[in-house]
Amino acid sequence: MNAPLPASTTYAKSLNAALLEMMREDERIYFLGEDILDPYGGAFKISKGLSSAFPDRVITTPISEAGFTGLATGMALRGLRPIVEIMFGDFLAIAADQIINHMAKFVTMYGRDLEVPVVVRTPMGGGRGYGATHSQSLEKIFLGTPNLTVVAPSHAHDPGQLLRNAVALGRPVLFIEHKMLYPETLLASGGALMIEPLTDEPFPTMLMKNFSRGAADVLIVAYGGMSRLLAPLARQMAEEEINLAIALPALLSPMTVAPLLPLAAQCGRVLLVEEGTTGFDWGAEVAAQLYAATYKTLKAPIARLASRAEIIPTSTAGENAMLVGAADIESKILELLA
């Protein structure tokens, strides 16, 4: 299901190419969202070329996130396979009722399983100075919603392939793309880094290691845009001979830590990192599950890093101080090893 990573393509190009291919192969696929038509091609250009190739199946929508998300659900219930783009992940809050009380409910609310093949993709995350309402990582609000699969590929994944797998799932998928990953070249093994899938699933966990001999000193578990901070940090720490095993799950919800357990038990030191605000977060669930399964072998309390529970400032200094950064991760690793 997961083809080998294409050589040196970017996160954005991988998604764009997958969309073009899927729409060529399957006439049931429709693409909906705001400002997605050529020549503009979407706010982050992920839909570039789509409307020229498939003018009938690329539908530019009014600024009605709840409306066109619900529209996609209706299309999916009647045999089509819509992919929805929400221009900024922050706007998912507008569509939340349609996702939680409609799209996800229809899957099992009627006493039997209904196919509801909708993928809602959206860019999350800060780093671009867009301020409080265009920079958040709101996916944690949706984690744990029954019947809703939440996927967030890092750039150690092949995001295009994961998007194909999301469309093939036949159930509602919230597909989270960190906007800072779009221009990044997809990671491949090389230099100090070795990257391999830890699981063979539609939404696999990728394992990134900065050592070839010995055992990991720390297991880091993180997702999505955090790979952008972790890859250079892992290279840097390889020179310092600190062995890092970095697990990057793409599947945020529903979630099981089972694939992580051997690594966690082996090194006994675990750090969870996410960009969302701290408190009631993804890391809390991962920590709870990991702790229940590995408490006898832990050498230190499970450490967690997230961004401050504050609004995201627009200024560079303010945003940098508020969001979790590479320096925060580095000091936490050193703390764990102290």
Binding site: S64, A66, G67, F68, T69, G70, L71, A72, T73, G74, M75, A76, L77, R78, G79, L80, P82, Q98, H102
Partner: peptide, 11 residues
């Protein structure tokens, strides 16, 4: 159900 029904009509 208004947008859902509208999506069904589109389909």
């Amino acid at each position: 159900m208004s947008p859902v029904a509208t999506g069904m009509a589109l389909a």
